[in-house]
Computed example of a mutant assay.
Amino acid sequence: MKNAKSLYRGHRFPAAVISCAVRWHFRFQLSLRGIEELLFERAVIVSYETIRRWCDKFGACFAHRAKAARRKPGTTWHLDEVFVTLRGEPYLLWRAVDQHGVELDILLQKRRDKAAAKRFLMRVLASCAETPRKIVTDQLRSYPAAKAGIPELEHVKHVFVRASARLNNRAENSHQPTRERERRMSGFRDPERTQVFLSSFGPIRQHFALKRHLLRASLYRKQLGERFAAWHRFTELTQGPSAL
C-alpha cells in the first residue's frame, strides 16, 4: 500500500514552522512582517512573501478541517450583513452564525438584493448538514423574498429584529473580530483575496477562541490543550512545534 503524499511535499521548511506561521496569521492580529520577525528570533529565516504564500495555500485547508471537526451547528441561524470598503468601493459582507456564536459561513457581495440574499442562504445551506429550526434576521426585505424561493427553508420559522435596537446581538457581535482585523490591516483591498482570507480567518480563530471568562483556569488549559492536539492533527504534525 502506497503512503499518502505529505501535505507539505516540496516545501523546504518543516511542517512545524509552516503550521505555526499560518496559525499566527489567522489567530492573532499579526502582520506578515511581524511573523517574519518572530520566526527570525527563533532562527528561522523566511521572507514575509513566503509566509503569505503559505497562508494562501494552507489556510483554506486547515479552516475546512477545523470546521469539519467542530460540533454540529445549532438549530438557530442569525444572519446579518455589514458594509466593508475595498479600495473605496462599498461591499456587503454577509455572515451567518448559530445561537452559540459559531460562524457558519460568510460571503462578500456587491449587492443587497433578493438575488444576493438567496445566493448567501444557498451557500449556508450547502455548508450545513441540516436545515435550521429558526432564522433570525434584521428587517431587510431581501431575506423573506429569498427565503420564499428556497424549498428547504419554506417552513422554517423566520424572526425579525430591529437592527436599530441592537437586539440581534449574536450576529452583530460576530462582526467585531473582522472589524478589528480590518483596522489592523489598514482595510481590505481585493474582493477575491478578502473572501479567501475571511473564509479561513473565522474557523481558525474560533477553533482557539474559548470562552475563557466562563472556565476555571485548569479547565481552560485542558480544553486549550485539546484544541492544540486537534490542530496538530489538522496540520499533520507528528509532534508539537517545541522548537518554536
Score class of each variant (00 low, 15 high):
residue 27 R to V: 12
residue 157 K to F: 01
residue 159 V to H: 10
residue 222 K to M: 11
residue 79 L to Y: 07
residue 191 P to F: 02
residue 56 D to R: 12
residue 109 Q to F: 06
residue 139 Q to A: 09
residue 142 S to E: 00
residue 158 H to R: 02
residue 234 F to N: 00
residue 106 I to Y: 01
residue 61 C to H: 07
residue 118 K to A: 11
residue 6 S to W: 01
residue 93 L to Q: 15
residue 201 F to D: 06
residue 11 H to V: 01
residue 234 F to E: 05
residue 77 W to M: 05
residue 22 V to Q: 01
residue 238 T to G: 14
residue 86 L to D: 08
residue 166 R to H: 15
residue 29 Q to M: 11
residue 11 H to S: 08
residue 100 H to T: 13
residue 232 H to N: 13
residue 231 W to H: 04
residue 232 H to A: 14
residue 168 N to D: 09
residue 204 I to A: 02
residue 72 K to W: 04
residue 171 A to Y: 06
residue 10 G to T: 04
residue 223 Q to I: 04
residue 225 G to N: 11
residue 118 K to V: 00
residue 124 V to R: 00
residue 230 A to Q: 15
residue 192 E to K: 10
residue 202 G to T: 03
residue 90 P to A: 00
residue 78 H to N: 15
residue 157 K to T: 07
residue 41 E to D: 15
residue 95 R to I: 01
residue 17 V to C: 06
residue 208 F to N: 07
residue 120 F to N: 03
residue 78 H to I: 09
residue 99 Q to A: 13
residue 105 D to A: 14
residue 118 K to R: 14
residue 132 P to Q: 03
residue 53 R to Q: 14
residue 20 C to L: 09
residue 110 K to W: 03
residue 26 F to W: 07
residue 229 A to Q: 13
residue 210 L to V: 03
residue 7 L to Y: 03
residue 7 L to I: 10
residue 107 L to E: 12
residue 15 A to K: 13
residue 117 A to I: 03
residue 43 A to T: 10
residue 81 E to F: 02
residue 9 R to M: 08
residue 65 R to Y: 11
residue 94 W to R: 05
residue 150 I to C: 05
residue 198 L to R: 00
residue 85 T to Y: 12
residue 39 L to P: 04
residue 161 V to Y: 09
residue 229 A to I: 01
residue 175 H to P: 00
residue 87 R to G: 09
residue 181 R to T: 05
residue 204 I to L: 15
residue 136 V to P: 01
residue 30 L to Y: 11
residue 65 R to Q: 14
residue 77 W to C: 02
residue 156 V to C: 02
